[in-house]
């Protein structure tokens, strides 16, 4: 299982804006902590909408260089949303932080600092 060092990865945040399935308080807190952290990150309005419309931007996320941590929902759903759009995520270097199960503080900590691959949390996943 690969491990992503905290400072070397890209961060992608999904706002889940089309259906608000991710609790509002959690996604707001995660966004705030990312915004305040002084680190670059990318954010999209809704990965489900992008998958449904086969948004070509998913390709650049899936094929971009380096490791990526994705703040979204269940890892199984995220994995197959990319696949459904025709842009499957690579087997290595992708980690999903589940904002439907974690608190905002926990999710942000995992995105920014945590070593997800060695985490005992069942709400995060590595595709390794």
């Amino acid at each position: 299982m690969s491990e992503i060092s905290p400072q070397s990865h890209r961060i992608l945040y999904c706002r889940c804006a089309y259906a608000n399935t991710v609790p509002q308080g959690v996604k707001d807190e995660v966004l705030q902590r990312l915004s305040d952290a002084g680190r670059p990150f990318e954010a999209v309005s809704d990965l489900c909408e992008m998958s449904a419309s086969r948004d070509p931007r998913l390709k650049s996320i899936a094929e971009g260089s380096g490791c990526v941590r994705i703040a979204a929902c269940y890892p199984r759903a995220v994995k197959w949303l990319f696949h459904a759009a025709g842009h499957p995520l690579p087997e290595q270097g992708i980690e999903v932080v589940n904002m439907r199960e974690l608190s905002g503080e926990e999710a942000a900590a995992l995105l920014l600092d945590g070593n997800i691959a060695s985490s005992t949390s069942s709400h995060t996943s590595s595709h390794a």
């Binding site: 706002r15 804006a17 966004l31 990312l34 915004s35 990318e42 954010a43 999209v44 909408e49």
Partner: peptide, 13 residues
């Protein structure tokens, strides 16, 4: 950030 995302834009910092 939050207003742009809630309107459907993709944003990068």
């Amino acid at each position: 950030l939050s207003q742009l995302l809630d309107k459907g834009f993709a944003v990068a910092l």
